[in-house]
């Protein structure tokens, strides 16, 4: 069995894994990182989205062996350990979740979206999240939440003023 070394949410793990073990199952069944759920077989739903070396991937469509030597961030690794990440807060404030099953993946995909585009329009948010399905919200409040978080994450005009 290949041995992998993967850092997950700041903790390094060394494990022997079957080559076929999906990263999603490695996280859930081996490491107990059950914050990342699985919703499909075909990488459509995006519920299992995590960051791999800082970029969003669907952890059901990555083998654990492929992630060897890389760094995984899951929903459980967001925030500073004390408070919520601005995206988490915005999802709460904008009622951007109902059952919450898609939420971890949606937030991780949104995080990636804002990394690429810190100030997206509604349309850009909708396109940027097209790899993540939600069956409860109709997406409208998710779009609001991502835009709100974008505002919260960007430097405030007042601060920009002050640094000038």
């Amino acid at each position: 069995m290949p041995r992998v070394s993967i850092e997950v949410d700041g903790v390094k793990y060394d494990d022997d894994v079957e080559p076929r073990l999906l990263l999603a199952h490695y996280l859930r069944d081996r490491l107990g990182k059950v914050g990342t759920p699985i919703g499909c077989d075909t990488s459509n739903c995006g519920a299992c989205t995590v960051l791999l070396d800082g970029m969003s991937v669907k952890s059901c469509s990555v083998l654990a062996v492929q992630a060897d030597g890389q760094d995984v961030t899951t929903i459980e690794g967001l925030g500073d350990g004390q408070g919520l990440h601005p995206l988490q807060r915005a999802f709460h404030q904008e009622h951007a979740l109902q059952c919450g099953y898609c939420t971890p993946g949606m937030i991780m995909a949104a995080l990636d979206l804002l990394r690429e585009n810190p100030d997206p329009s509604d349309e850009e948010v909708r396109e940027g999240l097209e790899g993540n399905l939600c069956r409860c919200t109709g997406y409208q409040n998710i779009v609001r939440a991502v835009r709100r978080a974008a505002g919260d994450l960007s430097p405030k005009p007042a601060q920009q003023e002050a640094t000038r």
Binding site: S43, G46, T49, L52, M55, S56, V57, K58, S61, V62, A109, D112, L113, E116, G128, E130, G131, N132
Partner: peptide, 9 residues
């Protein structure tokens, strides 16, 4: 092609 997460891989 697909979506951003799939395009990353």
């Amino acid at each position: 092609v697909a979506d951003p997460a799939v395009r990353h891989r």
